[in-house]
Design a binder for these strands. Sequence first.
DNA 1: TGTTGTGAATGACTTCACAGCG
DNA 2: CGCTGTGAAGTCATTCACAACA
Lengths: 204, 204
Amino acid sequence: MPANVPDIVIGRLPVYLRALEHLLKGGHEITSSQELGEQLGYSAAQIRKDLSFFGEFGKQGTGYRISHLAQELRKILHVDREWPVVLVGVGALGHALVRYGGFKPKGFTIVSAFDSDASKVGQRVGALVVQDMDKLASEIARIGAQIAIIATPAATAQEVANTLAKAGIQAILNYAPISITVPKGVRVQYVDPALLMQRLTYYL
Amino acid sequence: MPANVPDIVIGRLPVYLRALEHLLKGGHEITSSQELGEQLGYSAAQIRKDLSFFGEFGKQGTGYRISHLAQELRKILHVDREWPVVLVGVGALGHALVRYGGFKPKGFTIVSAFDSDASKVGQRVGALVVQDMDKLASEIARIGAQIAIIATPAATAQEVANTLAKAGIQAILNYAPISITVPKGVRVQYVDPALLMQRLTYYL
DNA sequence: TGTTGTGAATGACTTCACAGCG
DNA sequence: CGCTGTGAAGTCATTCACAACA
């Protein structure tokens, strides 16, 4: 497990993995850094360099066996297993996330849902029953969850993040439209489509 | 309108804007690069350097008037206006996007929805009626839309992107879990929560 | 005094270019 | 011969550090 790999490299690995899985579905068995790069808009050298942080996965003169490289990437990213995920905030967005089909095929399963609104506690959402926030820490410990999704309004997201960090959560996917600060050792990724839209309009 | 601003800088401007609007709501009137940086996890120098690409927005010894800086950022990002957006793909995700409340407050309104599935054409989704794909180009021209959201399955996303580019769309927010290639002059931003999850698990 | 705006210095990332190997 | 893996070179981004100024 090499240290000092730039985070920007880590961010590209899932993109590579997604492309490899797509090629596999299309019946391909072998690819090259050049072919991958053209598909993804990266240079061939960058792909080779990124992979070189972790080992040697190709054959000179041939390229990469797609299934093998994909499996190696899954190991590197720790997605060669199932991850339980807890969800905080069961409004419209939280409901959509429980129903969202994109997580399970990648090994992420929302196993508990929490909300601070007493009128929501006890309601069923898909196969889950919404629980009170005061059960959060004990449930996280019971499940052994390390990953949480925040889908609350912006106003409560920081408070929720504090609670999650205290309960031992180390990875947060934040859908609340606000930046949050977390203790060292906790990582946050942000999902805010409006932000991406604003990044697009700059160029219009 | 300065040229040659790194895209990575453009990507941070919406984050700054979001934080400024949050501070405004909290009753603040003035902030500093240091205060903003602490809130966002950036260095104060980086924020000042980013802003310096576009002008001088602060007062030495004082900081930035929040409402003024926010308005300047809106101008820079071209979000000081309303943007019509077309949606392609009206499955579960497309439905959720039409209902999603995060776009309209930022000036983005989904004004048309399209699907290639004949059984969906004519159905109502919120206030919209799903239209056939063969109306796409004429509707984009009629509306003057420059922005599109792709919410189709991965298998059709590239084809849809080609059609959108041909119809004059210059900015695409792609929810399909696949990388797409587009002609020069067209920009794409990706929304794939599973990718972000995989980026998080690397560190677990 | 406190904070900005900015060249200069440092650090990080990407590309180059080629040895090495299948 | 073709493609990988990788040091070296080049480019780009961030941080430093301070003059300028309210």
